[in-house]
């Protein structure tokens, strides 16, 4: 690994800006059969809740142009199961261990952080999911209200010294207001963006393709929106940004970093080309050689017109 890929997200060191996004890598086991995950800066666990969740029923995926909709609905084995069976495994992968925390209420998030904090020596950061669009309560409904974001991040800040990365939803009127609220609450970083709320219609049955009616749109189609949001937030924030949304090649990573991201998450691309981070890493290293620069110095170098 080239040192030129080293980045820092606040106090968290990552050996590469590439992190696998929550919900697109499970806990790492399946992808580790395909490539060596130690090339990554980190891996964000499947979104976890206090109790196990079976997730949504029926059709959960709809392909669309330049991406897909999903309505998995946070299917996960529950945080206790994760601590017992997955956390140690993730620590064997020689990459940053990010734990994605979801909940249905403020109390849920508080309880989750209380459960996870004693395991802080095995965790590099908590990614607080205030943005899943596929559950009825919590997540996105909290993440679209600045005062609730400020309050919840503030409560969690008092409970742990672990880095708190707040993953925000793009389904809001002003992303910078939400990001600022996270910063005011004491967040270490924000992750921009989770999926965009969407719908696909089956023209034969005149019903939504997804049994949940709506789902989260991800893939290359949302990249311009995500880059814009990163740029907008970079101009007003003091804390770092992790960019996410439609990244599938090295130039996407560069684009996000120039716009203001300190690191990035690769999500849906892993579902199509599971080992894409291998190629992206090679290309980023080559780019750094060619331009005789490291990646970290790229962050926020965008020159707006």
């Amino acid at each position: 690994m080239s040192e030129r890929l080293f980045v820092k997200v606040g106090k968290t060191f990552l050996k590469s800006p590439l992190i696998l996004a929550s919900g697109t890598c499970n806990m790492g086991r399946e992808l580790s059969e395909i490539y060596d995950l130690s090339i990554l800066g980190g891996l964000s666990s499947k979104g976890l809740t206090i109790k196990p969740r079976a997730g949504n029923e029926g059709v959960r995926v709809a392909e669309c142009k330049a991406g897909m909709l999903n309505s998995v609905g946070l299917q996960n084995p529950g945080v206790e199961h994760f601590i017992k069976y997955d956390l140690d495994y993730m620590n064997t992968l020689d990459t940053g261990v990010i734990v994605n925390v979801a909940g249905h209420s403020t109390e849920d998030y508080v309880e989750m952080v209380k459960i996870l904090d004693p395991h802080k020596d095995k965790i590099d950061a908590l990614e607080i999911n205030l943005s899943c669009p596929n559950v009825k309560e919590g997540c996105m409904s909290i993440g679209s209200d600045a005062s609730q974001i400020r309050k919840i991040v503030g409560l969690l800040r008092e409970l742990t010294d672990l880095p708190l990365w707040i993953k925000l939803t793009p389904n809001v009127t002003s992303i910078s207001q939400m990001a600022l609220a996270a910063q005011e609450g004491g967040a270490d970083a924000v992750v921009l963006i989770n999926t965009m709320l969407g719908m696909a219609v089956d023209i034969k049955t005149r019903r939504p393709v997804l049994r949940n009616n709506t789902g989260g749109y991800s893939g290359p189609g949302i990249k311009p929106v995500a880059v814009r949001m990163v740029s907008e937030c970079y101009q007003v924030l003091d804390i770092p940004i992790i960019g996410c949304g439609g990244i599938s090649e090295a130039s996407d990573v560069l684009e996000f970093m120039i716009a203001g991201a300190s690191a990035v998450e690769i999500g849906t691309a892993s579902l199509v080309i599971p080992d894409c981070p291998v190629f992206i890493t090679d290309e980023l290293e080559a780019w750094c050689e060619e331009n005789d620069t490291d990646l970290a110095s790229l962050t926020g170098t965008l020159r707006l017109w």
């Binding site: 697109t24 992808l31 959960r60 995926v61 709809a62 897909m68 999903n70 579902l271 599971p274």
Partner: peptide
């Protein structure tokens, strides 16, 4: 209906 085929996305 499937996406990744390798067990990482949980849609199928």
């Amino acid at each position: 209906r499937m996406a990744c085929g390798i067990g990482i996305c949980l849609v199928c």
